[in-house]
Computed example of a mutant assay.
Amino acid sequence: MTATDRPSNRPFRVETIDYATGVDDLRAVREPVFVQEQQVPLALEWDELDPLCVHVIARDAAGAPIGTGRLTPEHKIGRMAVLPDWRGRGVGDGLLLALIAEAERRHWPELHLHAQVSAVGFYVKHGFVPVGDRFMEAGIEHQTMRRQLGGPTAIDTRDAAVAIACAVIAGTRRELSIYSRALDPGLFDAPEVLDALRRLGTRRQRVDVRILLQDADAPQRAHAPLIALAQRLPSVFGFREANDPADRGYASAFIVNDGSGYYFRTLGNRFDGEGAVDAGGRARQLADTFQPVWERSRIVTEYRVLGV
């Protein structure tokens, strides 16, 4: 499965397509991408599931096929492909969103997929989290991923925690709020999370990242890499430490953006929790929890003077 994730300035549309009458259009994308480019055997590319699947196709302004995707009866997304000239133009996003919308229309509780490892970040952005170990499929390394529909996705591993944190960071418009005891080793020092925060902090659009800690000394002693990143971007990152006893006793932790994304852990010292990229109500609730504690907490001035 291959996909893209940057916006397009060229018009295209995504629609469902009947397999029986549209197989030639599907072939015009899938065979150049999978068979010719990725060397997947033709016999493996077309299978007995194809006639049973829901297929979507992306077309350019002239109606020519430029991308494909499908939903299998097992609630699996597959055969996501975009022609080379259209990659990086948002076609993959359009295909994936159309498949998710179709699954929601059918009231499916969950979707899963086998993502090529090179495309994992794309699916993470859309709320999919990794499950299990990587594996080889048609000679290409893949990762199983899943996303809950109509509710939060359960997070139960470090890899899933890193994925949902990156998705919430990527979905930030102008403000990201993090409530953590001590910058959660294993999560906020993960290279993927740091990269996501770096990309957010260096966007042209003004962004505020507010990080509320219960123990500001521990990350400082541990030389947490997020502190060093924040020192390079002092106009973006702000730290405060809770000093009210009730706030310091808060057992949970979360990250929430000003869109509809969040990752919440009932026990802040564990990765287990739940997350979503499209749960506006829950995200607003967590933001409302964060705000008064932020306002009454002290500014962590000592982070400003550390060497970088």
Rank of each mutant, 00 (worst) to 15 (best):
A3Q: 00
T4N: 06
D5M: 04
R6C: 08
P7V: 08
S8N: 08
T16D: 08
I17D: 07
D18M: 14
A20F: 08
L26W: 04
R30T: 04
E37L: 13
E37R: 11
P41A: 09
L44H: 15
P51A: 12
V56K: 02
V56T: 04
A61T: 14
T68K: 04
T68A: 07
P73N: 13
K76T: 04
R79M: 05
M80R: 00
D85T: 08
L95P: 00
L97C: 01
L99F: 01
A103Y: 04
R105T: 05
R105F: 05
H107K: 14
W108P: 02
L111E: 02
L113V: 07
L113T: 03
A115M: 02
G121Y: 04
Y123L: 05
D133P: 06
R134D: 11
M136C: 09
E137I: 11
G139F: 13
Q143N: 14
M145G: 06
M145A: 10
R146N: 09
P152A: 12
A154Q: 15
D159L: 13
A161H: 14
I164W: 03
I169A: 06
R174V: 11
L176I: 08
I178E: 02
Y179Q: 06
P191M: 05
P191Q: 10
A196F: 01
A196E: 01
R199F: 12
G201V: 06
G201T: 07
Q205V: 08
V209I: 14
L213R: 01
Q214A: 00
Q214T: 02
P219N: 12
L229C: 11
L229E: 00
R232D: 10
P234T: 04
F237D: 01
F239E: 00
A242R: 01
D244M: 10
D247A: 12
R248V: 12
V256M: 03
N257R: 00
D258P: 02
D258A: 00
S260E: 02
G261E: 01
F264Y: 05
G268K: 01
G275E: 02
D278T: 15
R284P: 02
L286N: 02
T289A: 10
Q291H: 12
W294M: 09
E295K: 09
S297D: 08
R298A: 15
T301P: 04
